[in-house]
Write a protein that binds this DNA or RNA. Structure first.
Lengths: 197, 197, 197, 197
DNA sequence: AATGAATGAGGATTCATTCAT
DNA sequence: TATGAATGAATCCTCATTCAT
């Protein structure tokens, strides 16, 4: 909302879209600070000023990308908030989150690896809020701490999983399934410990 | 090797140490790129040139801090590599790692949040290698993928735990214990699934 | 001559006129250099390119405004040059100049406050020439220097008066009258000193 | 106060002073906005970065110059405020102000011709305050408006005089004396009208 | 053990202007 | 009568680094 300027019907060019694409690539590859607008412009064979025609600031480029790409995540959260807070919901939430994560890998990797930078950007604040919302949907505030940690860990297991399982051999899809399984297990265990406790 | 110049008799001033301290604080607070040498120097009430008397480059400041602070981690890895690869060892490894993590929080938080930046610095390479070594000590390459993921997740649960459980209410020590418990559980389950499989 | 392009039938839109108005407002408020074409365009809810349809350059916008608004001044000078160089003429000149000044305040304030900028623009050159002409109409080149200064001061007292009497309490019209009175007095004294000398 | 950084004893170079000099020259010649730091640096045969070693911002260069050069003016105001508000004081004030004006011509001309720019700079605010103070010292708030205008005009006659008498032939010193005479006369007349009224 | 002075490279951003449509 | 898209040149400013003293 209110981020990038609106160009209702983009006549003639798709430069705007291309900027977003290239920017995200470079941000993810090299980090936000180490990527200069000059670099983005050169890669697209336009001038720096052209970037400023389409976006107000460097941050605005990032914001617009993030806004577009996190729409599914925001929808997922909205959906989950409307469901009963059952184990089934939580597990479905994780399944869907897994899909989103793997289809928006670049952005999430970028945010993960640039936390210090992103922290005081709109993007960072939004991301933190999403994570908080997801956390709240997964855990039960009345549960014992170990159970809560287990729930939250389910979430971050998936993040860590994305990047770290590079060392683990095997077919990517299989790995993704394994990660999801571990996450599903963690929420199940959390729930069990609550019922038992 | 790879550290910074040696000052045979580093009696007299502790400026070197103070630089390291302040630098780490600022790096952790604001990120590596966003922290300028000017800022560090001002905070210490010395000139930038003084920093260059003690360290060859900005990166060298970071390297020296990391080298000093990761010694316990390197020792832990060396220790574990000399032990039998039993479940007991793995669990002891996690316990000790937990101690290290919590006593060197600033540095680890810094590395975590500045991955993109740190990636092509010595510090990053070293860190990646430590993580790889820890991963290898925890998992069994012959185990099913889900088991391997579980092991690696144990590791990253601890990292994530450090930062994320801020949303979870409760006494820090209790939370830390809970995180450790979840991690220990994960390796235990990994082992169990191998035996069962 | 030297203005901007002629639009034979300037019916239909008054965009041209609106541009001039808004431009003058902004130039007067913020200064010429600090007012960008983007700003003018935004204020009018048109694109920058639209400005270029109506005017050749930024300077041309200013020139056209000045040309239009200084017509009465040019006419005044022409009138005075055709009169006998009597004290009565001089005083009538000041009276009429006072009227012009107060009815074109924005433009004169703008020129006054942007002299450095305007100096090498057509506008500046024209203004300087008008002032010179007025000066010559008021003073007697054969008079003693103090008399000449007095005459010229009459002129600038009116300018200064416009802006500076803000600190002086009182009804604007009354102040304007007071300023004019001082100016009239100054030329009278100049004339007297010549006769006496 | 608090403007430019303090370099207690400038060892070795007088670059700082040279920057101030050249900057003022260029600002006065071309205007503040039209003078770029590149230009100043080139004129001094140093890099732009060198300017930033000595001054925090472009504005800071100007501020420091103004601060240094307006010291006599501030002292004059302080002096006058401690005197009885007699005609003699007012006239002495004008005499001394005349001296200051002519010995700091560049700065005052600069401020005069760059009012729009300078308005929202510290320099402008300070200048406006000085003028207000001088005005208050010269005029009597209880006097009729025409008298007050006369007093204030005395002040601005001197300013205008500086620049405008270029058209008037004659020896500069003689012109300056003439201007001062007119100004002194104006305050005398103001005083007289009060006594008479 | 440290400083004062300076540099070179590069950063993001803004501007007046152009032109095909 | 306008606009969308773009450019080239310039802006202020910051940074890590160097070096004579």
């Amino acid at each position: 909302m209110g981020t990038s300027q609106q160009h209702p019907q983009q006549r003639r060019t798709d430069t705007r879209r291309r900027i977003q694409q290239v920017a995200l690539e470079l941000f993810a590859e090299q980090g936000y600070e180490k990527t200069s607008l000059r670099e983005i412009a050169e890669r697209l064979d336009v001038t720096k000023a052209a970037l400023y025609y389409h976006f107000k600031t460097k941050e605005d480029i990032l914001s617009s990308v993030a806004e577009d790409l996190t729409r599914p995540l925001r929808e997922l959260i909205a959906w989950a908030e409307a469901q009963p807070h059952s184990l089934a919901t939580k597990q479905e939430l994780l399944r869907r989150y897994s899909d989103i994560l793997w289809s928006t890998l670049d952005l999430f990797r970028f945010i993960q690896e640039n936390q210090a930078t992103v922290r005081e950007l709109t993007v960072g604040e939004n991301f933190r809020q999403s994570m908080k919302a997801l956390g709240e949907l997964l855990k039960d505030p009345a549960a014992p701490i170990a159970a809560q940690v287990r729930s939250v860990t389910a979430l971050f297991a998936m993040h860590a999983g994305m990047f770290v399982t590079q060392n683990v051999e095997g077919d990517p899809e299989e790995k993704r399934a394994a990660i999801l399984e571990v996450a599903l297990d963690l929420v199940a265990q959390a729930e069990a410990s609550v019922l038992a406790g």
